Amino acid sequence: MISLAGEVLLVETVRQGGLDAALSAALEPRRKPAEGPRPGRDLLNLALAGALGGD
């Protein structure tokens, strides 16, 4: 549980700052029709995983 405290802080900071919506809007023109509704989500998840020490 303690290791997730940093993750929650990062995710909430991103949400409050509007980065997830801005990233999705910027990547919208490159989105394929069959992809999910939030094209920036995968990129943001990879960035957060890297910030938390993921491989």
Rank of each mutant, 00 (worst) to 15 (best):
E12T: 04
D42M: 10
P29H: 13
L23F: 01
S3V: 06
R30S: 13
A34F: 12
L52Y: 00
L44Y: 00
G54K: 04
E7Y: 09
D42E: 08
E7W: 12
I2C: 01
G40I: 11
R30F: 13
D20E: 15
L46T: 05
L48H: 05
A51Y: 11
L52R: 14
V14A: 15
A5V: 13
G50I: 06
G54A: 15
V8Q: 10
P39I: 09
L23Q: 02
A51W: 13
E28N: 04
P39Q: 03
L27W: 07
I2M: 11
A47C: 03
A22E: 09
V11I: 15
A26W: 00
G54N: 06
V14R: 01
A26D: 07
L52V: 03
L10G: 02
L46C: 13
G53K: 11
I2A: 01
A26I: 06
L10Q: 09
A51V: 01
A47W: 02
R30L: 15
Q16V: 13
R31L: 05
A21Q: 14
G40W: 01
G53N: 08
G6E: 05
A21D: 10
N45R: 14
A51P: 05
L27K: 01
N45F: 03
S24V: 07
E28S: 14
V11P: 04
G50T: 09
P33Y: 10
L52P: 02
G54W: 07
G40R: 00
L46H: 14
A22C: 03
S24F: 00
A26M: 02
A5N: 06
G53S: 10
G18E: 05
K32Y: 05
A47S: 13
A47P: 05
G54R: 10
P33W: 11
A34M: 07
A47D: 00
A51K: 10
G6T: 10
S3C: 04
E28D: 14
A26L: 13
L46R: 15
L19R: 00
L27H: 00
L19D: 07
A51M: 15
R41V: 11
E7S: 12
G17W: 04
T13P: 05
P29T: 12
R38T: 13
P33S: 12
A26Q: 03
S3A: 11
E28C: 00
L48N: 06
L48T: 14
R30C: 10
K32N: 10
A51T: 01
E28M: 13
D42V: 09
L4E: 09
P29A: 02
R41D: 15
A5L: 12
D55I: 07
T13S: 10
R15E: 11
V11R: 15
L48V: 15
G54D: 08
S3E: 06
I2K: 11
L43D: 01
R31I: 06
E35S: 11
D20I: 02
V8E: 08
Q16F: 08
V8C: 00
R30Y: 15
G36Q: 05
G36K: 15
S24D: 15
M1A: 11
V8I: 07
R38G: 00
R31P: 04
P29N: 14
G40Q: 08
R15N: 02
D42Q: 10
V14K: 00
L23S: 04
G17R: 07
E28Y: 00
I2W: 01
A49R: 12
T13A: 15
E7A: 13
A34V: 04
